[in-house]
Write a protein that binds this DNA or RNA. Structure first.
Lengths: 131, 131
DNA sequence: CTTCGTGCAAATTATTTGCATGGCA
DNA sequence: TGCCATGCAAATAATTTGCACGAAG
């Protein structure tokens, strides 16, 4: 069920895995980043590869207030989407694993993938709120 | 921040709250359901009201493999999207509250809304898999 | 080699907007 | 009454598709 490796697909994955891109880009932002490195890549190719990468579990689609964003699929973690500054924070924690185990045990479900997204205030915006 | 109550908005909310609609409709399915009861309602009105209802916290947008679905916003609960039959199950449990409290305590975030979505196998499809 | 992925442009689908009118508060 | 929401149609944005060609395994 694994698709072919092409330079286009690898570039997308590479861009998403760079720390400086922890912006969790939208497909539009991702397109800009991709084209910055290779102008010859077509928009349709980006769509097609994003779909494949999601299906293959290499990247993750995140739901925000105004659309989708993408993240490299590392260890199980959640996301906080700040309602004020709209940035997306990774929230790593042990508890998710426990939650999944608990749900599988109690509700006869088998969980293969998670999308845990919180809306709220990020640390920075909480500070500036209190000023 | 509350918008006006119109019959269109109330119809949408009503349809989403009926138990038999636990199908968690896409906007397309929702449109069909709405038009079944009142053909005069325009598509744009449905889009506009869905946005308002989400903003007002009355309904919730759920991310699935192939788009969005909508659910009435009851008590905090998660969703299982079955990778086989594509149905969406509500997963009520105590643990979510604990998870949120834990994260707020440990990561200096303030959580106002949650989107907890799991992909996996529903009870029915697990059974049929084992046959 | 053979099959799958690509770039391009066109097609399709999804969502938003402008405007004149009607309806809630 | 005044302002917001509506329906309609047109505009725009987002995503998909068909096709001929090039590249991966």
């Amino acid at each position: 069920m694994e698709t072919r490796n092409t330079k286009q697909k690898e570039l997308i994955l590479d861009i998403l895995s760079r720390k400086e891109n922890m912006i969790h880009p939208t497909i539009g932002e991702l397109t800009t980043l991709v084209l910055n490195e290779d102008k010859s890549i077509g928009q349709a190719t980006i769509y097609r590869n994003i779909k494949k990468l999601v299906r293959e579990g290499k990247i993750k689609k995140i739901l925000t207030n105004d659309g989708y964003r993408y993240d490299i699929n590392a260890d199980l973690h959640g996301h906080l989407v700040c309602v004020k500054c709209h940035s997306v924070y990774d929230l790593y924690d042990e508890s998710y694993n426990k939650l999944v185990a608990h749900l599988e045990k109690n509700y006869q479900v088998k969980i293969s993938n998670t999308n845990i997204i919180f809306d709220g205030l990020c640390p920075k915006c909480q500070e500036s709120n209190n000023k």
